[in-house]
C-alpha cells in the first residue's frame, strides 16, 4: 500500500518549477500533491502524479534528474488531534519521519509520509485502522 513519489532535482532559479509543471501538463499528467524542499542553491521537488512512469520518461527526456521513492499516503478526518494520534503511534514504534506534506479540504485531510521504515509504518497504520490511500483512490 505504498505510492511511488516522483522527486525532481531543481536549481534555485526562477521558472524551474514551472518548467516541470509545463512538461507534465503537456503530457496530460495530473499532479495530486507536491512539496518543495530547498537549500540555498538547489531544491528537491516531490510530487504525487497521475502517471508516474510517464512522468519519469518525459522529465528525463528534458534532462531533469528524477528518482522514484516509496511513500505512504493516508487519509484522516480533518479534525483536531486526528494526525497527532497517528504520529504518536509511529513515534512509539521508533518510526522516524524523514518528511511529510499534507493537504486538508472539507472533512478530510490527505497526508504523504516518507518514513524511515516503510513496511513497518504501513503495518502500524493498518493496525490503527488508518485509511491508507492507494493509487486508484488518489485519482
Amino acid at each position: 500500500m505504498t505510492i511511488k513519489q516522483l522527486s525532481v532535482f531543481l536549481e534555485n532559479k526562477s521558472g524551474r518549477i514551472n518548467e516541470v509543471t509545463k512538461v507534465l501538463g503537456e503530457n496530460g499528467i495530473n499532479m495530486q500533491a507536491f512539496s518543495m524542499a530547498e537549500t540555498t542553491d538547489f531544491g528537491i521537488l516531490r510530487l504525487i502524479v497521475s502517471d508516474v512512469d510517464k512522468a519519469v520518461e518525459v522529465l528525463r527526456a528534458k534532462n531533469f534528474a528524477v528518482v522514484l521513492t516509496d511513500v505512504v499516503c493516508i487519509c484522516c478526518p480533518n479534525v483536531a488531534g486526528a494526525l497527532s494520534k497517528i504520529l504518536e503511534k509511529l513515534a512509539a514504534h521508533q518510526i522516524f519521519i524523514e518528511y511529510m506534506y499534507a493537504f486538508a479540504q472539507g472533512d478530510q485531510a490527505n497526508i504523504v509520509i516518507r518514513p524511515s521504515n516503510l513496511e513497518e509504518c504501513v503495518r502500524l497504520l493498518a493496525e490503527e485502522d488508518c485509511h491508507i490511500l492507494d493509487r486508484k483512490q488518489l485519482q
Binding site: S7, F9, I44, R60, A65, V66
Partner: peptide, 14 residues
C-alpha cells in the same frame, strides 16, 4: 549532478 546520482534524501545531497 549526474542524473543517476540524484537522491530524494536531502542529507545525502548535502
Amino acid at each position: 549532478l549526474r542524473p543517476d546520482s540524484f537522491s530524494d534524501d536531502m542529507g545525502s545531497m548535502l
